[in-house]
Amino acid sequence: MRINPRIINRLVRMGLNVQAFFTVGILIIIVAIIFFKGFPHMSFAFIFSFPEDMGREGGIFPSIVGTIQLALLSILFATPLGLGTAIFLTEYTRESLFTKLIRFGVESLAGIPSILYGLFGFIFFVIKLKMGWSLLAGVLTMTIMILPTIIRTSEEAIRAVPRQLRIVSYSLSASKWETIKKVVLPAAMPGILTGIMLSIGRAVGETAAIIFTMGSSLRLPLSVMESGRTMAVHFYILAREGISMEKAYGTAVVLVLSILLINILAYYIMNKAIARYS
């Protein structure tokens, strides 16, 4: 007997519907578990006090500071490099062998897994350049890791700026760089900001590359040459070495909540930007 294709169509539609909500359900379950288990262990004191006894007692203040230091310094290095690359690729050159080579470099960097960044950062920054396990080694490794994200998002944002804006600017006898600085970049700013926010989210959540470059010292890093610990690394050590499940859940809440907020903000900015030019 042949089944009516319309019935199959309806069944498939239902199945796919369930499947899509199941996938989103996984996200909701993950977030819900972390929140329900972690919120009881999170408090003002937990966030602003120092850990005691390897993290068994006390709070996570140094790891929050370490995370912010790592994220902001990496962005500080990666944004000019990435934005400059994006401006060069979009405004200063046609597609050629040279741009293909650069794009190949960017794509390859984006595909390298974080443990290989960890290996590289460890041998190059920590050992060969004698930085030791330090904030600086972590920042430089992270800078290279987030560079592809910043380049791609900035490039898309700059390409989306309408040609007319540039033409008008040239007709007012502005030079190329003046046009880019005063017309193109302000118009592309929301897209560029999205890339920066996504990169901050990545730096906050990264573990494998950071643990071998920035180390895992529990002290507050006061200079870039000192080792420190990010929230993700702290969470990993608490959970893996079974130091304290309560503190691990508490750390996880702060970690996941900050990443979610950063990413939601990023997509919010992006949607605003898309609405502007379509």
Binding site: L27, F235, Y236, A239
Partner: peptide, 28 residues
């Protein structure tokens, strides 16, 4: 299959899944 409104909800939700750090996946 999804309508425009559904897409507006599902796509960002799936992108947020990409942002969950791998240590959190490991822990859970």
């Amino acid at each position: 299959y999804s309508g425009k409104k559904m897409k507006m909800f599902l796509k960002p939700a799936l992108e947020l899944l990409a942002g969950i750090p791998s240590v959190v996946f490991g822990f859970l």
